[in-house]
Amino acid sequence: MVTSLAPAPPRRPAGSPRGRLPRSTRPSLAPLWLLSPAGLVLLCVTIAPIVFLVYISFTDYDQRTLFTGEYSVVGVDQYAAILSDSEFWLSLLRTVVFTATLVGGSVLIGAGMSHLMTRLPTVMRYVVTVVLILAWAMPNVASSLIWKWLFQPQYGVVNWLVTQTGVVGDITSVNWAADPQLAWVCIWLLVVWQAVPFIALTLYAAETQVPLERKEAARLDGASEFSVYRVVVLPALKPTMLLVTMLSIIWDFNVFNQIWLVSAGGPDRATSTLGVFTYTTAFSGNVQIGAGSAIAVASTAILLVLSVLYIRNLVRSGEEL
């Protein structure tokens, strides 16, 4: 972490619409003492572990090491093994696809819901808000376990309800977690169920700031509800939309509990995302910590490359601020 100080720049960046930084030109020690507590803690609990993680990814650290401390440096062997393992690439692909479908699904439903809320009578809107908060507040370990119970073969109520509809025949004994596709569906529903409330409530709060008159005017002009949303609401919601999308990407990318508790990455690793793959490699069975570290480092590196453009943009906007 860099804490060296430089005098504040003599002029404000040209792109900035408003001044964001103090004009004072005298060097200040303030950033140093403001940053150092967090910096020290991050140094200990984040940076040092990351450095160590990179180091062990070049060793054969395994169960024996754990028990006896013996290990040897094996160079890039772990990486060679990981990168030639189709399971690694599959996990990466799964993670990306899963994150994309989750973010897409929850933002769509959330946006739809928030817009719907603006058109509801007060009482109904209040009910929706309470329901949303209820789903949002459920700790995800609890909701994962509820899911397992809802989708339980034989006694699960979802199986029973779906069977009652008569559309797909008798599925009371279907084991969702044991079927690759159904396991994904089940986990997707769970994560989306919990992700929608935050998105809906945040977007709703933002949408109430959009002047009602503009929407009404568009409606009077005969615009369909969808075009009202696209033309009038969406542009105003853009910053909020970007924020919830970004938060969703971060959160959905890191979904672990729900997968772990519902399917444990199974059946036959069909739901094993990078997080699950890293954990099972490093801590299950034979405890291949070196290999697990290599997976973590390699996948982070790949994702960094994939998102380099996005980061460049962020950095650039950071510069303007």
Partner: peptide
């Protein structure tokens, strides 16, 4: 239905 189940659930 039991073809894909384990002994614990159900």
């Amino acid at each position: 239905a039991s073809a894909t189940l384990n002994t614990l659930e159900p």
